[in-house]
Design a protein around this nucleic acid. Structure first.
Ligand code: MN
Ligand code: MN
Ligand code: ZN
Ligand code: ZN
Lengths: 141, 141
DNA sequence: GTTGCAAACGATAACGATTCTCAATATAGA
DNA sequence: TCTATATTGAGAATCGTTATCGTTTGCAAC
């Protein structure tokens, strides 16, 4: 249950937090901005202050429930931290975001950090390109 | 000469642009924010409007003279586009930025994009960790 | 070397994303 | 149920960045 997840994270169980967490679990798009989350909730009749959305997301991140990404598009995007680590490829034409995991790259990153004398704690890898989805190609004009 | 570089880029040769380009070439730090560039110029007695700094950087980027990066620290950082492509590793303690190039990772990125049906156009890879420079370790407190 | 005019400049207003403030309200434990 | 404390929502404030606009400059034709 979502309320358990909040309690386990050391957070009080409040209506806004439950609504936001539930949306993150059920939305078709895994990667969303704070604005998008705010808007989707509002469209579903759940009006929650934008400041509260930002606050909840910051707390969820601190608790390890979600991760944030800074794609080149500007706005911060959030996603539920479920399943194994992965990186992203973003379509520069339609905005589609896909996930991938590459053992070779992950391993090389560790070797590079070590060889430069760094204690590696995180990394951000995003590929940018044009996807081949029919919808995207259609709008190619 | 810097003025040639501006002309070749199709830009008028103006005092602010020359000052900014020269700073980018001579500064000890290759990776700087717009604010830092503005401040370093001001400290050197070259007062240039902040808006002009942003404008010049945008034009330099469009002309391919510089590249911009979005590290997790928030602000956009700029660097002269000289020499071969590289990625970055950033110290989360002292902010040091180092560069690296890894042929294996570059190759895997191309393969991943291709296997997902994307026409790869760019990528951003940044590693985060703690460096082992004496200065950084000293302030470990 | 002047002149003319588009391009660029600087100051500052505006902007979008995010964070802060604070009075009102809800949560969780006694 | 009662209370102490955390959380909320509305809006102000902040931060980095971009747009506006009157003034100045680069530069090419005279
Ligand atoms: Mn993801
Ligand atoms: Mn670099
Ligand atoms: Zn696409
Ligand atoms: Zn360091």
């Amino acid at each position: 249950m979502d309320s358990d997840e909040l309690r386990n994270a050391g957070l009080k169980v409040t209506t806004p937090r439950l609504k936001i967490l539930t949306l993150l679990e059920n939305a078709t798009e895994r990667h969303m901005t704070a604005e998008t989350i705010y808007r989707l909730l509002a469209e579903g009749g759940e009006v929650i202050g934008l400041a509260t959305v930002y606050r909840a997301l910051a707390q969820f991140e601190a608790a390890g429930l979600i991760t944030r990404h800074h794609f080149d598009s500007g706005q911060t995007v959030y996603e539920l931290e479920r399943g194994p680590h992965h990186d992203h490829i973003v379509c520069i034409r339609c905005g589609r975001v896909e996930e991938f995991y590459d053992k070779v790259i992950e391993e090389r990153q560790r070797e590079i950090a070590a060889s430069l004398g760094y204690k590696l704690s995180d990394h951000a890898l995003t590929l940018y390109g044009e996807c081949n989805s029919p919808d995207c190609l259609a709008g190619k004009g």
